[in-house]
């Protein structure tokens, strides 16, 4: 029984990690800029498609037709030569194999640019406008982003292979001194969890130990005062938006091997992440992270057959149900401050 519970717990971790990463960015944007960003899921999706694009380039091939040979079905043989391997040799092959982690390097600057452009171009004009209008404009942006992706990449999910070396499963049970092969856990999910833990720790460290982070935190607590001190908070908030976009993008990249991305990936995660943010407490970073993992794990437990036998359909609604209960009983969420956005 313990093994079963532990396994479900592990199963919830990777999804929880994705929720936590998206919710972290959402909260960062909400806490600093005061903007309710419905386009945040789209940033996650864009990150995932950065990975898709990188892989497309890495696996580009030249096709030459060798008329002297015939393929098994009688047509002239097509000789495909992967370009990257041709140029870079073995390193090219490694690059193709590790395309997903490699994409991160390219995703970071791209998402940073996307984030900054979005903030400077559109979001900044909405700081003083009602939350409803912020929701609406970012909702519109999310639609645009998803439709652009759809028209480029088509409607179907595009699977991204994980590196061959990382395909197996880790025997966590044995690692913890239990019987071998009782609790095994796919390696990539473990990596995703560790990756997200590192990113989250990085964001917290950044906010905690840099002057930049200090100003931002002070701004989250009391924007007006910080503004009055003559600190140019706007510039920093732009960077924060970029940072949130990067976090979302990286989360999207690393998630591609677990769930082949398609154009509505962002919307699917957005709704859940919003719920996560609200459960954690609007504006609370630790709340967002804690709630992300909590809901991921709860969802995992709710999809156990034993649980579904008792409450049919619970796996479909558990997250929303938790959100509704939390909002009604404790409106500021698990770790939120009182009165945020309650006007």
């Amino acid at each position: 029984m313990f093994e079963v519970i532990f396994l479900q717990f592990l199963n919830g971790l990777d999804k929880g990690a994705a929720y936590a990463l998206i919710a972290l960015g959402l909260t960062l944007v909400f806490g600093t800029l005061g903007v309710v960003n419905f386009a945040h899921g789209a940033l996650f999706m864009l990150g995932a498609f950065c990975a898709v694009t990188v892989r497309m380039f890495l696996t580009m091939e030249t096709v030459t037709i060798d008329p002297t040979k015939l393929s098994p079905w009688g047509s002239p043989l097509e000789v495909r030569e992967p370009l990257v391997q041709a140029w870079l040799g073995d390193f090219g092959a490694v690059l193709v194999n590790y395309s997903v982690p490699f994409s991160i390097l390219i995703t970071i600057p791209i998402m940073l640019l996307v984030g900054i452009a979005l903030e400077r171009g559109i979001i900044k004009h909405f700081y003083k406008r009602p939350h409803a209008e912020q929701i609406l404009v970012t909702f519109g942006l999310a639609i645009v982003a998803q439709e652009v992706i759809k028209s480029i990449f088509g409607p179907n999910p595009i699977p991204q292979p994980m590196p061959t070396d990382l395909r197996g499963a880790a025997d966590i049970g044995a690692f913890l001194g239990m019987q071998a092969n009782v609790i095994t856990y796919p390696l990539w999910r473990l990596i995703y969890f560790v990756f997200s833990a590192v990113v989250i720790a990085g964001v917290f460290a950044f906010l905690q130990f840099t002057t930049f982070g200090m100003v931002v935190r002070a701004g989250m607590a009391d924007r007006e005062t910080v503004g009055l001190l003559g600190i140019n908070i706007d510039r920093r908030f732009t960077v924060m938006f970029g940072l949130a976009a990067v976090v979302a993008g990286m989360a999207g990249v690393m998630y591609t091997p677990l769930l082949p991305p398609n154009y509505h990936l962002g919307m699917d995660f957005l709704v859940l992440s919003f719920v996560v943010v609200v459960v954690g407490g609007m504006g609370s970073l630790p709340g967002a992270v804690a709630a992300g993992f909590l809901l991921g794990i709860l969802q995992s437990f709710a999809s156990m057959t034993q649980v579904k036998a008792i409450v049919p359909g619970i796996d479909q609604i558990i997250i929303y149900l938790v959100a509704v209960v939390i909002l009604l009983v404790r409106p500021r969420g698990l770790l939120g401050r009182r009165g945020v956005m309650e006007s």
């Binding site: 309710v36 939350h131 959100a323 509704v324 909002l327 309650e342 006007s343």
Partner: peptide
């Protein structure tokens, strides 16, 4: 309607998704 603003929006969203 026990909540207002963004919380109201999220609640309605949650119920509709359920």
């Amino acid at each position: 309607l026990r909540r207002s603003g963004i919380y109201f929006s999220i609640l309605t969203l949650a119920f509709a998704q359920m």
